Simulated assay, not measured.
Amino acid sequence: MMSTSPTPASAAESHARIVVVEDERTIARTISDRLSAEGWTVAIAHDGPSGVATIENFKPDAVVLDVMLPGFDGLEVCRRVRGLGEFGVLMLTARDEESDMLVGLGVGADDYMTKPFSMRELVARLKALVRRVRRNASTPEANAPSKIELGDLVIDRDSRRVTRGGNEAHLTPTEYDLLVCLALAPGTVLTREQLLEDVWDWVDATGTRTVDSHVKALRRKLGSDLVRTVHGVGYALEVPEGELA
């Protein structure tokens, strides 16, 4: 078993506030103790309704959210809290089923892990989520374009709104960040590892399935022709032929 000793936290992820919504009390306490050892402040809820109330009152940087909860499930929790503020959501699932993962991503989850999981990896992913949340809340880069227009795809970075063919697409925060990353280099193949580092702020390749699942979600919302798969390498955003400005 991997060590659960704390790892040094950078200033970007120190003093984080985390809500753990998990009905298995032993698991919830184990996660809480591990995160507290990082110097983070943790609140725990054990069912859907109290999870929503805790998230609303605690104003976390990130949420660890189990899918199977009494009251109502974690998917419903995620639907209800997504408009309450800027925070990351990491879902815990009991099954390694891609359909379950896509549903979770569709309601606003940023990442997911299947049980049983490594506590070290859970902490690493939460640190990355916290860094992303704080990075997105900071002042945009001075040289970054405020609007990206590629054919009939329009990304307004000031309002974080995306339209294609005049129809607005409702993207989760991670889907939006992934789309922007691809759209800033249209036609360029970006490896899964590059995308993990640039979008998820991970420095290893343990989550390449996360990239694949988010790309599938983007295709479902914006059209299957928009993101091209380069097998064995990664993905590229393609402007459909005839739609170039």
Rank of each mutant, 00 (worst) to 15 (best):
R131Y: 10
P140A: 06
S118L: 13
E121G: 13
G71Y: 09
L69A: 02
K127P: 02
F87Y: 10
M119Y: 15
A124P: 06
L122Q: 10
L150G: 00
R164V: 02
A53C: 00
T114F: 10
D156V: 06
F117R: 04
V52Y: 02
G166F: 07
R134Q: 05
T41M: 07
S50I: 08
P116M: 11
E149K: 15
L153Y: 06
V133S: 04
E86Y: 03
K115Q: 07
G74L: 11
V162P: 02
F58T: 06
R135L: 13
D152P: 14
G85C: 00
L90T: 00
L126P: 08
R95V: 04
T163N: 02
V89M: 09
M119T: 14
P173N: 06
E168Q: 15
I148M: 09
F117E: 10
L84C: 01
I148N: 09
S99Y: 10
D47P: 06
T139N: 13
R125W: 09
A62L: 06
K59V: 14
L102P: 12
T93S: 09
E86R: 14
D111F: 07
I155A: 03
E97S: 14
Y176L: 05
S50M: 03
D33Q: 10
V162C: 08
S159I: 05
H170T: 11
E168H: 08
G166Q: 10
T163M: 03
R95I: 08
F58H: 04
V162W: 05
I148Q: 02
G151L: 11
M101I: 15
L122K: 08
H46I: 11
A37P: 11
T114G: 14
R135S: 09
I155W: 02
A94V: 03
R160D: 07
V67L: 10
S159Q: 13
V52W: 01
A124L: 11
V162T: 08
F117D: 12
V133Y: 03
Y112A: 02
N167Y: 08
T54A: 11
P60D: 04
A169K: 07
L102D: 05
E149F: 08
A169Y: 07
S138Q: 11
A62R: 04
S36T: 14
M91K: 00
D156F: 03
N167C: 01
F87Q: 00
L122I: 04
F72M: 12
D61I: 04
V123D: 14
G85T: 01
L153H: 04
R79H: 06
R135P: 08
T114V: 15
P70E: 11
G88P: 03
C78L: 10
A169S: 13
F87T: 01
A62G: 08
R132E: 09
L92S: 06
I148V: 13
V42I: 14
L92T: 00
E56D: 14
A62Q: 09
N136E: 15
R131D: 08
G166D: 12
A142L: 15
E149D: 11
R120E: 15
G108F: 12
D66C: 14
C78I: 03
